[in-house]
């Protein structure tokens, strides 16, 4: 009897996992199905059915030769520059945001001087600054990366500063007692204890970077990119391509967020386990 129960466990776990995945995707599947049926009934040229969009995506970007990982020249010419600019912009935001944030968080004086300035800069909607950037930077990639940085840096910077300010007093006292070097204090205590806040900021920054990536490609001076492709398609009334861009952005956002969550889970494994033990 008990053997039978024990024997059933792995099977039940497998089924549980399967229904878990099913539950997660079933709503999406139903929504897509409704979308397909609705657009087929409506027959509006502005709303192509998802099957048309997917086949458009395939032919536009993923029907290339195997030597190019099946990417077409359209894909390497537009998707890669977009992703490249976003990666550069986000990386620069992380480096500058974490660096400045730590400085701001660990120095009362710096915080007092700079916090009002940063709070002010943070609430300016980045798109409104586009004209300024167009004047300040060279049109094209330089200006586009600058707009991404200017929007993505704030959540990381302010979250890092907040986290660095609230490092446990006793941990810092311990560091003083054992006379840890300032490098050790930074890398062994302050940075690790700020990590959860940095990741919280990073999640916001990631979606801002994606938005600004597309937005900056709609501005004058853009010659490639997903946003450029979409505005170009719009001017040619090529609705399926426009929709393909929209769907692609959705998938990109989802994938990037999933990647970030995986990285976060790895980086904060110790933090989360420690907190779980603490609360019991």
């Amino acid at each position: 009897m008990s053997a039978a129960v024990a024997g059933r466990r792995p099977g039940r776990y497998g089924v549980g996992l399967l229904t878990g995945i099913l539950h997660r995707w079933i709503v999406l599947a139903v929504a897509v199905a409704c979308w397909e049926v609705g657009t087929r009934i409506a027959r509006s040229p502005s709303f192509p059915p998802p099957s048309t969009i997917v086949s458009k995506m395939y032919h536009l970007w993923f029907a290339g030769p195997a030597s190019h990982l099946f990417l077409t020249s359209e894909a390497t010419g537009n998707l890669l520059p977009s992703l490249g600019r976003m990666a550069v912009g986000l990386a620069a935001s992380i480096v500058a945001g974490v660096g400045l944030g730590l400085l701001l968080g660990r120095s009362e004086r710096m915080f007092a001087y700079l916090d009002p300035l940063f709070q002010f800069a943070r609430v300016i909607p980045p798109p409104t600054l586009a004209p300024v950037f167009i004047v300040l930077f060279k049109l094209g990639s330089q200006m586009q990366i600058a707009s991404i940085i200017f929007s993505a840096i704030w959540p990381i910077l302010l979250n890092t500063a907040d986290g660095a300010r609230s490092v446990d007093q006793l941990q810092m006292a311990t560091a003083r007692v054992f006379r840890l070097s300032s490098t050790d204090r930074l890398f062994k205590i302050i940075l690790p204890s700020t990590m959860p806040k940095i990741f919280a900021g990073l999640r916001l920054s990631l979606s801002l970077a994606l938005i600004l990536m597309v937005f900056s490609e709609l501005l004058p001076g853009a010659t490639d990119g997903i946003g450029f492709l979409m505005s170009d398609a719009q001017s040619r009334s090529d609705l399926p391509t426009l929709w393909a861009g929209i769907v692609l952005l959705g998938i990109l956002g989802y994938l990037l967020n999933t990647l970030l969550l995986m990285a976060e889970r790895r980086a904060l494994a110790g933090h989360r386990a420690a907190r779980r033990v603490d609360t019991t």
């Binding site: 054992f178 110790g270 933090h271």
Partner: peptide, 27 residues
């Protein structure tokens, strides 16, 4: 050296036990 009452906050949760003990020796 000091041993504090609140060990859970004085030890660093992201370092192993051995690394916690070895950390002050770096200097």
């Amino acid at each position: 050296a000091v041993v504090f009452q609140d060990y859970s906050r004085s030890l660093l949760p992201w370092l192993t036990v051995r690394d916690n003990v070895a950390l002050p020796l770096r200097r």
